[in-house]
Design a protein around this nucleic acid. Structure first.
Lengths: 137, 137
DNA sequence: CTGGTTGCAAAATTTTTGCACTGGT
DNA sequence: ACCAGTGCAAAAATTTTGCAACCAG
């Protein structure tokens, strides 16, 4: 589990200032796992009501560009965001939209796809779908 | 290659009327392969300038719901749309965003993922990334 | 101090909607 | 002739931007 200290380091390493808004935002994304802009804004506001939506947008865009967070685009829904911890793919529940991480080995998968399609593959986004335990029954 | 007749049948099979706007829209999506809303609107307008953006939106949403077209969400870009021909995954050029189809066997891949992760997988979205021939050099 | 960051409000962009009219069946 | 589909304009929703004040380093 990534700690709050880890985020401070990540910010400093990129010459970004460690502000309360950023730490709160990163903490919520980390805690929730995957979260859309609206939900993130709501959660952040419950802790610190003065934080503005503009700050959420500015920071999400910035942190995605800087590689601290990652956008997870989903068919038929709005994108959600996560802390970039690398090497995993996503499982989305067809019914409720809940997103889970599945561990994977990126290099292995890239190699597999590169061989299978005869083209150099250096990245991928994989979103599997099915039903989560709650919606399965 | 899918013909214009194929689209008429697809529409009639769903009790949707065969209008010039729809045929033009489907024709452009088919011809271009993968296209965003804006580009689609521009292309359609060059052929038939009276078509409205609202009609583009209404039809794209409708045709995606009806399974005639498919949304292809892409990290860091806006979604593009394609004719739903099933059984393929996407390759997106990191540099120019060009989207290519790679043929695949959906059932085989679902089975592979189901086994690998121990969860029933009944669909997936896979977007590989690398560089297209033009941007590679 | 000082430049990056924030909050607010306004602006820009994107998407949806209401409604009268048109046109496919 | 009926009603889905269209175009237009307005509205709603989403995202970006400008700027003065603020605060982390």
């Amino acid at each position: 589990m990534k700690t709050t200290i880890g985020f401070e380091e990540a910010l400093r390493a990129r010459n970004l200032k460690v502000t309360p808004q950023r730490m709160l935002l990163l903490g919520e994304v980390s805690r929730l796992g995957h979260v859309g802009i609206d939900e993130l804004y709501e959660k952040v506001k419950t802790v610190s009501p003065s934080v503005s939506l503009a700050t959420i947008y500015k920071n999400v865009n910035l942190l995605v560009e800087e590689g601290v967070m990652k956008e997870v685009p989903i068919e038929g829904r709005k994108s959600v965001y996560e802390i970039d911890r690398g090497d995993h793919i996503h499982f989305v529940c067809r019914t409720c939209g809940f997103v889970e991480d599945f561990n994977t080995d990126s290099d292995e998968l890239c190699a597999m796809f590169t061989e299978r399609y005869g083209r150099q593959i250096d990245g991928f986004g994989i979103t599997l779908s099915g039903h989560c335990s709650k919606c399965r029954q």
